[in-house]
């Protein structure tokens, strides 16, 4: 099982921060308060979409074929993610 990275607080639904990082080789832990990279703030489904976008060299037609959706549906999804990334970027500034 590949556990899903939680990005939202289960209590108040705010975006979580990274508090600890650990080296699997020597067990060294680094503690602090780090913001999640902007792409990790997207939902898993949106991250998968972005990954597929890269893997198809940005061809929406190819993505539509692979995902079994129409071209405008894929383009709309991409537009929505771009809009979300813009908002997240503005929030980060």
């Amino acid at each position: 099982m590949n556990p899903k990275l939680p990005i939202h607080c289960p209590s108040c639904e705010s975006i979580l921060q990274v508090a600890q990082l650990k080296c699997e080789h020597c067990n060294t832990s680094v503690g602090g308060n780090f913001a999640l990279p902007i792409f990790l703030k997207l939902h898993q489904e949106e991250q998968d979409f972005m990954m597929q976008f890269f893997m198809t060299s940005g061809s929406l037609k190819e993505m539509a074929k692979q995902m079994g959706n129409s071209y405008p549906t894929i383009r709309n999804k991409l537009d929505d993610i771009i809009e979300k990334l813009r908002t997240l970027k503005e929030e980060n500034l």
Binding site: A64, K65, G68, N69, S70, Y71, P72, T73
Partner: peptide, 10 residues
């Protein structure tokens, strides 16, 4: 059907 099928099929 617009969200399911490709533009060619539609």
């Amino acid at each position: 059907p617009f969200s399911i099928y490709s533009d060619k099929k539609l």
